[in-house]
């Protein structure tokens, strides 16, 4: 079995150590005997969508995001058919709002990719701190740091419900989005190390799409992962702001 992970524009979208997510996907593939190839693609290069089994869109600076969105919108049709074909995509932190119809940065509204029915407006304050959420596949933890307030359309499901922290907008207790195999979240940077459930789900969905059966992975111990998660669940509260 072989999966290809496509990391988009690492020169711009590695603001918060996002490369850690790629490291985790690679290692957890290897532990299941899956060969994982990582392709990186700079914003100047043509994007090898055809080869991708998992696409990763990390977080970038306010300054660079419109450029990223502009480049991706040139491939909107390809992305839409990737989505409808069950292609797996993970967008994190400031990459997440790009999935929706529109997003705002410093008072200016920009057009998004419309891969998911959602819209992001600029909030009055930055939502910063540790966050935990309950999802259909387990509890996720991480760190959030965003000005954006994202509101989901009626037909789309949130990634999870906020246990502590702010989430999509600090109002409706939702966090992130799942639509087909597109996953978006405000969790920043390296979220996969302490959330193996999400890593394994992405790998399984990608394998299912490529090899037509949902793989029956043997469970991994995840001992240290759970200890890291436990820290945020027990002590993360003191870092909540916003």
């Amino acid at each position: 079995m072989k999966l290809t992970i496509l990391q988009l524009f690492p020169e711009l979208l590695n603001l918060y150590g996002d490369r850690g997510n790629i490291t985790v996907l690679k290692k957890r593939c290897a532990l299941r005997g899956i060969e994982a190839e990582v392709l990186t693609c700079s914003i100047e290069e043509p994007i090898p969508f055809q080869a991708a089994d998992i696409i990763y869109l990390g977080g970038g600076s306010d300054h660079d995001l419109p450029r990223v969105a502009q480049k991706l919108s040139q491939h909107k049709e390809t992305l839409l058919s990737y989505r409808d074909d069950g292609g797996v995509l993970l967008a994190t932190a400031s990459g997440y709002p790009l999935l929706g119809h529109a997003y705002s940065i410093r008072g200016k509204e920009h057009t998004g990719l419309s891969l998911v029915d959602m819209t992001t407006r600029e909030g009055a304050k930055k939502l910063t701190g540790s966050i935990s959420l309950n999802t259909s596949f387990g509890v996720l933890v991480g760190f959030e740091n965003h000005n954006g307030q994202t509101f989901l359309g009626k037909g789309v499901t949130a990634l999870g419900n906020v246990l502590s922290g702010n989430g999509n907008n600090g109002e409706d207790k939702t966090e992130g989005v799942m639509y087909k195999n597109i996953y978006g979240t405000y969790l920043t940077g390296p979220l996969l190390p302490s959330n193996p459930e999400l890593s394994d789900l992405l790998i399984a969905k990608a394998a299912e799409r490529k090899y037509k059966t949902f793989p029956d992975f043997p469970p991994l111990p995840n001992e240290i992962e759970n200890l890291a998660k436990g820290y945020i669940l027990n002590y993360g509260n003191r870092t909540h702001k916003g």
Binding site: Y16, G20, S130, N145, G189, P190, S194, L227, Y231
Partner: peptide, 30 residues
């Protein structure tokens, strides 16, 4: 800093030739 994502901006990959490794602090598991 409450956010420790910067750990993945450090080149710990290079730290391969040590005889023993230990981790500590509140974020030892991370």
């Amino acid at each position: 800093g409450c956010d420790i994502s910067w750990l993945y901006d450090v080149n710990f990959e290079e730290l391969t030739n040590c005889t023993a490794y230990g981790v500590s602090g509140k974020r030892l598991y991370d």
